[in-house]
């Protein structure tokens, strides 16, 4: 299973970026192999619909779940359609968020928890 964590940095000890669509990078953690890699979020450069573009990119990478702070209505609809689970309220570093997720301490989003256009 592949889990993407939104971040501004490049490794496990980087801070989580709570904004999904406009985050700089994702750390993609593969629970089967225990390995992680970094991908640039090209979606954030979209002048329109960054959340949708980001969801498209995550879907193309075969991601199964995403961990972030906030998700807006369009990104939520898009991730849901792509069958990607969304865990919100992440804080601290990538490593800490992943740990919280593994301990079942992050909420799975049932709806958007941010307004549209929040991801400036």
């Amino acid at each position: 299973m592949k889990i993407a964590i939104s971040t501004q940095g490049e490794n496990q000890s980087s801070e989580v970026n709570p904004r999904l669509g406009r985050c700089e990078r994702f750390i993609i953690h593969d629970t089967d192999t225990g390995k992680s890699n970094v991908v640039e979020n090209g979606g954030r450069l979209s002048s329109s619909g960054a959340g949708v573009a980001t969801a498209k990119m995550l879907a193309d990478l075969g991601v199964n779940a995403v961990i972030t702070g906030f998700v807006g209505p369009k990104a939520f609809a898009a991730l849901e359609a792509a069958g990607i689970k969304i865990f919100i309220g992440a804080q601290g570093t990538v490593e800490q968020s992943l740990k919280l997720y593994q301990d079942n301490k992050l909420d799975e989003a049932q709806s958007a928890n941010a307004g549209a256009h929040s991801g400036i």
């Binding site: 904004r19 307004g115 256009h117 929040s118 991801g119 400036i120």
Partner: peptide, 10 residues
């Protein structure tokens, strides 16, 4: 319009 929305987000 659009710029105001951008300036208010978050």
């Amino acid at each position: 319009g659009c710029p105001v929305i951008s300036s208010l987000a978050d």
